[in-house]
């Protein structure tokens, strides 16, 4: 059973992520979970699309497929359906998954293919220099929302629940232990497991939104997250929840029919 350090492609380090980028943290948690699962490196395939988050697949020691923008889930569908014995993990970002890849996302959830999808939601297009994404909070500044984002944001976890994924959770890069446990639970759960990670982008998002330091952004994520159980309780009590917060925790765990199970 490979140790966690063997899961990294050591000759590619250090990686291209900026100082304080949350993607490295998510990569750590994912590989820790894969190691905890006792998976073999040669039985695992990492698939990713385009964007900062999607470079993560290149830093894993396993076979990895770094594909075109938004199409990671469609490629992963092909890999998993053709060879169900593989453990398939998809790295994606908020723009990659919800904008250009939105159609593939809902259909992968609907098919409930047995794989683990990890979305690094940094609320912005980081690779191209900080443009607004469907997940940019209302009022936040970016290079394409110079007067504050006007569009409502996408709640990806709720979308995955509605589309039919078997396991859906959301954590942040502050909650590394919970995130690791959650990814492991997702890997254990048959069917599509969607783990959304709110991640910091101090370089592009923070710079425009008075959160320039990585510490400030991590504290922002910590302070604006609210446990889903607490949120539901407050909602039941009829209390108002500020719309700047986002729920964290396990959204759903169920056993709908699954495609691409190991034979």
């Amino acid at each position: 059973m490979p140790s966690v350090s063997e899961w990294y492609r050591a000759d590619r380090m250090p990686h291209i992520f900026c100082t304080g980028c949350g993607n490295g943290t998510v990569l750590n948690c994912t590989l820790q979970a894969a190691s905890d699962m006792g998976w073999e490196i040669d039985d695992t395939v990492f698939v990713s699309g385009i964007g900062c988050s999607s470079r993560a697949s290149g830093y894993t020691a396993a076979d990895s497929l770094h594909t075109t923008h938004g199409r990671a889930l469609a490629f992963a569908t092909g890999v998993k359906m053709a060879h169900p014995e593989f453990n398939v993990v998809v790295f994606t970002g908020d723009g990659d998954l919800s904008a250009i890849g939105g159609n593939h996302f809902i259909h992968a959830c609907r098919r409930n293919i047995d794989m683990t999808v990890i979305c690094m939601n940094n609320m912005i297009y980081g690779m191209t220099g900080g443009q607004g994404s469907p997940c940019t909070p209302r009022g936040a500044f970016s290079t394409t929302t110079p007067y504050g984002a006007q569009e409502p944001t996408f709640d990806l976890a709720e979308l995955a629940v509605a589309a039919g994924a078997n396991y859906v959770s959301r954590w942040t890069t502050y909650h590394v232990k919970q995130l690791t446990d959650s990814i492991k639970t997702g890997m254990e759960t048959p069917g599509l497991s969607f783990i959304e990670t709110m991640s910091q982008c101090p370089t592009s998002y923070g710079r425009k939104n008075k959160l320039r330091q990585p510490l400030d952004m991590i504290e922002y994520l910590r302070d604006h997250s609210i446990l889903i159980s607490k949120k539901r309780r407050l909602e039941a009590e009829g209390k108002v929840i500020p719309d700047t917060t986002f729920a964290v925790g396990e959204f759903v765990r169920r056993s709908r029919p699954v495609m691409g199970l190991k034979r």
Binding site: F17, G20, G22, G24, N28, C29, V176
Partner: peptide, 9 residues
């Protein structure tokens, strides 16, 4: 915690 969080391994 520090090892899991460290984005740069």
């Amino acid at each position: 915690m520090c090892q899991l969080t460290c984005p740069d391994q």
